[in-house]
Design a protein around this nucleic acid. Structure first.
Lengths: 222, 222
DNA sequence: ACCCGTGGTGAACAATCGTTTACTATGGTG
DNA sequence: CACCATAGTAAACGATTGTTCACCACGGGT
């Protein structure tokens, strides 16, 4: 059907045909229900092939899982590189990493959900992803400090981690937020209200009159 | 073995014996590996009983799951009530909800992890839990506003949700934070550095000199 | 003494799921 | 043409898992 007359595309660069379909459907279903919880046969029938072909291409279900992990990581890295070369020299503050991901992706893309699930499911790829995100957050905070947009806290590494987990919390819990607020923080119209609130807090704090360290007691519990 | 001469304790108030052991071990294992991913036989052997007894007591695995959900919700509500009657009339700001949970629980308690998993796994009980947490966050922010410790933002409901997801992000991602920082944000010694950073941000913002709304452009992307 | 509800067990059942095996079609190459 | 690698399938296998069944012990009530 599809004309695939690449002479000998032996490498994994020939993404097309049923193989890519399997990977894409696996990504979609894994993002929805989690890798465990999706039978191989479901992936196969979603891709319009037999279950045996899936293992023929990817060796095993773990192999498919790894392939999807690598693919998502590649997409994420590509997006990161594109952002680094973005037309605005000012790195748009932190801009919310999750917002950036959602903005540079098709609206209903499963990649966002899959990234969240990688972080939550606790596999080695999730750990690697978080380490990468942490490095980005540290570098971003450093850039903001250099640009005079922020101060390093008492411990810049802790501050970067706080900013990162704040961001990822909204990404992971977006369904629940949309439930109680009627507003998906990653949707284009949600970005306005949600992101504005975050920027306000980051700019001026919560606004209460208590920035002065009172001689009351520094710690409530020992 | 254990003297349980309550005449006809038909209600679920007779917590003791093997039944409670099953529930506790299920809670521990479910928190570790997720409810799917833990065979009934593992729960049974961890509790020192047979698999058949588990379903005799809880009807099915879903029944056990529901029982654990309800138990965790009850523990959480009890903790919430205890905090509400706490010796400090000032509600200790938001104090980080996750911190409160971790503080009022045995150090290695599985309840914390189980709560995080409930929020992530996307079941109805997770939705109910988040709604409850959201109500608490809205009420807490309102109390802070009344006490002059914070201002409602442009939209207090959004601000409460932001504070909540910030908190829960640290709870859900604590393993990853501990990995990159060598510091569990929920541990007693982690609370100092992590919580201090958060309080600083909430008190004064990130500290950069940009709180003035510049006439540049309010939104980067349409 | 008789019965019966409660707590408990081990073996068997049936469904699901990952994987293997044997087999077919097809199209390019020596 | 003969060959063979590639893409593909259907069916069966084996392990795991939730659930059920038949059975045992025993401690009160009447």
């Amino acid at each position: 059907m599809v004309n695939m007359h690449s002479p000998h595309g032996a490498g994994p660069a020939d993404d097309r045909t049923a193989r890519a379909r399997i990977r894409d459907e696996a990504l979609r279903l894994f993002a929805e229900r989690g890798a465990d919880g999706v039978p191989l046969r479901d992936v196969a029938s979603a891709a319009g092939v037999s279950a045996a072909l899936v293992v023929k291409h990817y060796g095993s279900k773990d192999g498919l899982r790894d392939a999807v992990d690598e693919h998502v990581a590649a997409v994420f890295e590509a997006m990161l590189a594109e952002v680094a070369l973005s037309p605005r020299p000012e790195p748009a503050e932190l801009r919310s990493l999750a917002e950036t991901v959602a903005g540079h992706l098709p609206p209903g893309s499963a990649v966002t959900d899959y990234l969240g699930r990688m972080l939550v499911d606790g596999g080695p790829s999730g750990t690697a992803l978080f380490r990468r995100l942490y490095d980005v957050a540290v570098a971003t905070l450093d850039a903001m400090v250099t640009a005079g947009l922020a101060e390093p806290g008492a411990d810049p590494r802790v501050r970067a981690a706080v900013l990162l987990t704040n961001d990822l919390g909204a990404l992971i819990l977006r369904r629940h937020v949309a439930d109680v607020l009627g507003l998906d923080p990653l949707s284009p119209e949600g970005t306005a209200r949600w992101g504005a609130e975050i920027l306000t807090i980051y700019a001026t704090g919560l606004g209460g009159r208590a920035p002065e360290p009172r001689p009351d007691e520094p710690k409530g519990r020992p």
